[in-house]
């Protein structure tokens, strides 16, 4: 299975993960400052900044796009409870 790494810049931790892993599954375990509310892509609590490897995450769904817009999210922001890792190296940061 394709391997990928995700780095949580706020705590300086890099985790090797299998493709398909959601960011939420990793970030809580390592204690990153990304926080969660609904856990299902509705509340916008988990908005994170993707500082590199944007293209190595799944595309945002229509619903995720809507929530990002309603929360006036900036460029390269994603919902950590929705985004899944595809491969390659990714770095993220809480907003």
């Amino acid at each position: 299975m394709a391997k990928s790494t995700i780095t949580f810049e706020d705590i300086n931790v890099t985790v090797t993960v299998p493709a398909g892993t959601r960011v939420i599954e990793v970030s809580e375990k390592v204690g990153s400052g990304i926080t969660y509310g609904c856990r299902e892509g509705d509340c916008g609590t988990c908005i994170m900044k993707v500082t590199s490897g944007w293209n190595h995450l799944t595309e945002p769904s229509v619903l995720e796009d809507k929530i990002l817009r309603e929360n006036m999210a900036g460029k390269h922001n994603r919902l950590a409870c929705q985004a899944q890792v595809l491969g390659g190296e990714i770095s993220v940061h809480p907003v």
Partner: peptide
């Protein structure tokens, strides 16, 4: 310091 972990070990 910088840490590198494996998902399976978390």
């Amino acid at each position: 310091s910088q840490k590198v972990l494996n998902f399976a070990d978390l």
